[in-house]
Design a protein around this nucleic acid. Structure first.
Lengths: 197, 197
DNA sequence: CCGTAGTGAATGAGTATTCAGTTTTCTGCC
DNA sequence: GGCAGAAAACTGAATACTCATTCACTACGG
């Protein structure tokens, strides 16, 4: 079997897992259910993934790879100011999650299942993502547009916190709003704060 | 048995549950383990709680009652400006979680187990908590110190998002920092934003 | 001495993972 | 092309658990 065909099957299993886990939750989804949706036998799952948990982590890895790739494109753009980069970053985060509700559910809910999984995830790709935000903030202070005394990493976590809460709130809301529509108010608050200027 | 003694036993079970679930996770903790730590038989748990899930929800209810009580005290204080109220609110949130790591773990991780539980929780006490933040922001716009065009509820969610991320980050970090030490930078960013003024 | 509270072994449902057997794909040869 | 044999991929029923919940019985307090 060619590498390409194997890769495609792996993707099919991951897609099936995203769909089922988003709807029934990680513990509510059996490996059999995922296998059935992917059109393979239960045992086949274990040819591609070490365990059910490994499957969940692989969903995360695949998604974060895309997130980080796109985010890096924004951060590394030449001749773009920090403010504009931040604007784009916020829009990107909200768009990527807002365009795939199943994935959003998994990111906002299912990945937080146990301290153990959360620790594993946050130690990996998550760090890179936060570092990218921090880079934008550092650029901003260098340009003199962002405050001089900013702790870039801490501030990056706050930026992430806002985006994360927007996503969770959207996932939980029944209303049919677009997540990306919150880009502007989020950026405004981040840049200008609550105070009147 | 007096109501008081019954209440005390219920509290003991809740305390035991907080401790065990924080350490092993909800799914990693058996009802037997909780019973053993509380010094009661397995069956006794079911005299006080409908199910294991009800136990988790009861932990949330008990904690949120305290949170909301203390938060309401801040929001309803007479003769205090919105900026100062926000400062106090941030400090309160970070202190309450920072002083009880087990409870913090449960809040930041275990409560988010399934969409189902999260929905249940966010529809109840969580709403009130957000509403309290929103009230402070509204007061600020009325006073003219906060921006006029603020969507108070949306901004409240952003405030909450930052606090929530600070707490999660603290829970996941091995370092021995105090969560409350982040009060000042959080408040600064919220009030003044990233931009130089 | 009775009703309330508590007990903990038994139940029964659920399911991740394995593995002996089957099918498909690949390889080298005519 | 086509074919045998080997290797790789796949299958799904059986295994080997784990645990929430129940309930017949016991102990206790008023």
């Amino acid at each position: 079997m060619t590498t390409q065909r194997k890769e495609a099957k792996r993707e099919r299993i991951l897609d099936a897992a995203v769909l089922e886990i988003a709807r029934r939750g990680y513990y509510g989804t059996t490996v059999s259910t995922i296998a059935r949706r992917a059109g393979v036998a239960d045992g086949t799952i274990y040819l591609y993934f070490k365990s059910k948990e490994d499957l969940l982590v692989s969903i995360f890895e695949r998604a974060m790879q895309r997130f980080n790739f796109e985010a890096a494109g924004i951060v590394e753009a030449d001749g773009v100011g920090a403010e504009e980069k931040l604007r784009r970053f916020v829009a990107l985060h909200l768009s990527l999650l807002g365009e795939d509700r199943d994935l959003a559910v998994i990111f906002q809910v299912e990945f937080r299942h146990t301290l153990h999984i959360l620790e594993r995830l946050s130690r990996s790709r998550m760090r890179d993502y936060l570092a990218l935000i921090a880079r934008v903030l550092e650029q901003g202070t260098e340009e003199g547009v962002f405050k001089r005394d900013l702790d870039a990493l801490l501030a990056a976590k706050m930026v992430f916190g806002i985006l994360d809460e927007m996503a969770t709130d959207w996932v939980l809301s029944k209303k049919n709003t677009r997540l990306a529509s919150r880009s502007a108010p989020v950026t405004d608050l981040l840049l200008g704060g609550l105070r009147t200027s």
